[in-house]
């Protein structure tokens, strides 16, 4: 809730600022005190809140699933194992239907992405002020609790997938084969126009290739950032009297219902696209 000392703009800005650790303008190392200061730190700084929540939620996933896996038996499964296996089977079916090659990495990676991103997105449904106010109470000035609203996090995952796309493309097709795929399609290089066709093809295919990690990372970021923004905007209404408070509450609730869909869908889209890109990277047959 916006306190009396804050304007709405300050409130929004405060909610959208990461807790950034880096070199301060005076040369010492510490947490940035404002968005500008964080921006001036350049590349050699780290968003502690995003990292912490991301790693924490990732660990929740690993610990939950590891606990189920360690006790997994072929007998009658318990509650946790049932839930875990349901998610796993869902992803496994997806991976098997899309990814026709044999690679032990793909399905576990898709599972990790799906559950991890889902957990990160789910943090968006925690009322926007709860955790930041708690953090302020213990002296932490900025606290963004939804890691997937930080482009660093989403782009890092997208680029990781992109790295794997390049790795498996070269591994399965060879460097030459990969270049061929990029330049001999969609216009077949024939006759006197061959060099021209190759240049056009390469330009087109290269953009397609680059678009993969960008769309992957920015789609997730954009959806969650926009969702978070709407929660924050609605939260401003809480400070505007009884009528606005009730209206804001109702709208928060409606938006949360809708956002639940986005939370799930964006996680699923990220995982499915990852599988699709991996399948394309493994596809050796000519178009």
């Amino acid at each position: 809730m916006a306190s009396e000392a804050q304007t709405s703009a300050e409130y929004i800005r405060h909610h959208l600022t990461n807790l950034t650790y880096g070199q301060l303008p005076d040369g010492s190392w510490g947490f940035a005190h404002s968005a500008e200061e964080a921006g001036s730190m350049g590349f050699w700084s780290i968003n502690v809140d995003s990292m912490a929540w991301s790693v924490g939620l990732g660990l929740v996933f690993l610990i939950l699933f590891r606990a189920a896996a360690a006790k997994a038996t072929a007998g009658v499964p318990g509650g946790l194992q049932n839930a875990v296996e349901m998610v796993m089977e869902f992803i496994d079916d997806l991976a098997e239907s899309i990814f026709m090659h044999s690679n032990d990495l793909i399905a576990p990676m898709a599972l990790t992405i799906f559950v991890w991103v889902f957990f990160m997105n789910l943090m968006d449904l925690v009322p926007v002020d709860w955790i930041p106010l708690l953090a302020q109470a213990v002296g932490i000035h900025f606290m963004k609790v939804v890691p997937s609203t930080d482009p660093n996090i989403t782009m890092a995952m997208a680029l990781s997938v992109f790295g794997l796309i390049l790795y498996y493309s070269v591994k399965c097709k060879g460097a030459i084969g990969f270049l061929k795929e990029l330049s001999f399609h969609p216009f077949p290089p024939k006759g006197v126009f061959a060099p021209f066709a190759i240049v056009i093809n390469f330009a087109l295919e290269f953009v397609t290739l680059i678009a993969k990690p960008l769309s992957l990372g920015l789609r997730l970021f954009g959806n969650l950032y926009a969702g978070e923004m709407i929660f924050v905007l609605l939260a401003i209404m809480f400070g505007g009297g009884a009528v606005l408070f009730l209206a804001g509450s109702a709208m928060q609730w409606v938006w949360a219902m809708f956002h639940l869909l986005i939370v799930f869908l964006q996680a699923l889209i990220f995982a499915v696209l990852t599988i699709v890109y991996m399948a394309q990277a493994h596809d050796t047959e000519e178009h």
């Binding site: 950034t20 880096g22 964080a38 921006g39 730190m41 350049g42 590349f43 050699w44 700084s45 780290i46 968003n47 995003s50 990292m51 991301s54 790693v55 990732g58 930080d150 482009p151 660093n152 996090i153 782009m155 890092a156 995952m157 680029l159 990781s160």
Partner: peptide, 12 residues
């Protein structure tokens, strides 16, 4: 702004 978080998250 993109920063070290990118690398940290990639490693993670």
């Amino acid at each position: 702004n993109l920063n070290l978080t990118l690398i940290g998250q990639t490693a993670t």
